[in-house]
Design a binder for these strands. Structure first.
Lengths: 255, 255
DNA sequence: TAAGATTTGTTCGTATGTATC
DNA sequence: GGATACATACGAACAAATCTT
């Protein structure tokens, strides 16, 4: 794990005890190369290992828990365990960073237009039938044009799930996370801020056709075409959402 | 702030009390539209507002503190305050997500090659003389070819700072964070894993020339050229680092 | 099903540390 | 330096969850 912030001399002792304990435990996990699911020392042991009160130790554990680094269970066989940070939690934590910042729809699409085609191109000819099938299953949610605004919103969320799922299939975890994060932000905007487009049969038709073409290109292994189709798809989506003029994302996080 | 994870019926009560309190405080901040620096209720008030013990409240505050959402100060006038999540902390928290995942140099550069030229292109003609001067000042660190491996490493870190700084100058906070995060990862790899290139005068010359050309293009407002130069620069950097065959990033986080 | 063991979760009272006036 | 207002830390007890028998 990462070392901690710059420490002016004497800072070590000024640093709160829970922080100190949390750091020590992180170091301990890294040094031993512990893996998710591995057991950590129990409260009782930590108490006398560090010579601190129970409350102090527990505060340290909460610091780690909030970061998704540990999980705790009660009862026999319970205790603290190394936890794998989930994509959802990482998204939520990163979302906090943008809470007080100004991020526009255009900002998001500038990045999406650069990354989504890249992913699509790299995935051509590399997806299993099961994966392609799963994408097609998601598309069922918008097989028919939306009748009202509410359904339009549901369809939009489903189409974002299409992209999120696609981002899971690539071998590049970094690229996958970035793309999934943006899909998450847009989903939040759609659901939470009730941002939606009034049903428009023409756009529905075009968007759906894009995804059908995309699937075909992915299946046949036509990388260049997958990339081009995705790019068109993104540009259309951007124009669509920009029309809404909704801008910021005002959302915080999970635990 | 974001709502919390899916709640099966009854989960509300099973959720630990610190978690419940942390959620409530997040909601409170969002509802009132509090800004960084704004005061939160003191321990005493929270204790009787929620009807819980001090320890419980304190654990809740640690959950929020770890996410960078609050800061606390002791003494008169002290207490808890809404905190702005810093870029450094967000990077560190996100870094944890990748700790147990496999991220290769190639993964990083695949994304860098897509995003850095985008940023460079959008910045052409938009930087102040002060900003351009700052970039040039960073370049001073590698005005001369490195004499040994240690200096080579320092130069590499400086050149990454060049990119990190550039990412701050753009108006797109999302794009800026992604680029800065990758620069951070590469810096960690360079410093922490002692990944470095043996000094190579030819490559040093080419890399430096790229950045000089880039500055010139940025200054003159030649967007297409800035983009092209950055792309060449990234491709060279990728080849350089790939030769090291260093792969994973093994690093955790700060507090 | 029930009882017991184990481990985290929560409370309360008290004392200490720290920064401001 | 002393008083004040806050967070920080301690320790002992009790509650709740969950596994085993």
């Amino acid at each position: 794990m990462a070392e901690n912030p710059p420490q002016d001399p004497g800072a070590r002792s000024r640093r709160s005890r829970p922080l100190h304990v949390a750091d020590a435990i992180k170091d301990w996990v890294v040094e031993r190369g512990l893996q998710p699911g591995d057991r950590l020392p129990g409260e009782a042991e930590l108490i006398d290992r560090f010579g601190m009160a129970k409350g102090t130790i527990r505060e340290a554990m909460r610091l780690l828990q909030a970061q998704g680094l540990i999980e705790t269970k009660t009862g026999p066989g319970g205790g603290s365990f190394v936890g794998e940070v989930t994509r959802e939690r990482a998204s939520a934590l990163l979302g906090n960073y943008f809470y007080f910042r100004h991020v526009t729809i255009d900002d998001i699409y500038q990045v999406r237009i650069a990354l989504e085609p890249l992913l699509a191109g790299s995935l051509a000819g590399r997806l299993s039938d099961a994966q392609l099938g799963e994408l097609e299953a998601i598309m069922e949610a918008y097989a028919e044009p939306a009748a009202d605004a509410e359904e339009e919103r549901r369809q939009h969320v489903a189409s974002l799930r299409f992209h999120a799922r696609l981002s899971d299939f690539g071998g590049n975890a970094l690229l996958g996370f970035f793309i999934g994060f943006m899909a998450q932000i847009l989903t939040d905007l759609t659901v939470y801020k009730r941002l939606y487009t009034t049903p428009n049969h023409d756009l529905w038709e075009k968007g759906r056709q894009h995804q059908i073409d995309l699937i075909a290109a992915l299946r046949s292994g036509d990388s260049a075409r997958a990339k081009a189709v995705m790019r068109s798809h993104m540009e259309m989506a951007r124009d669509l959402m920009e029309a809404q003029q909704a801008e910021v994302l005002k959302r915080f996080i999970a635990e």
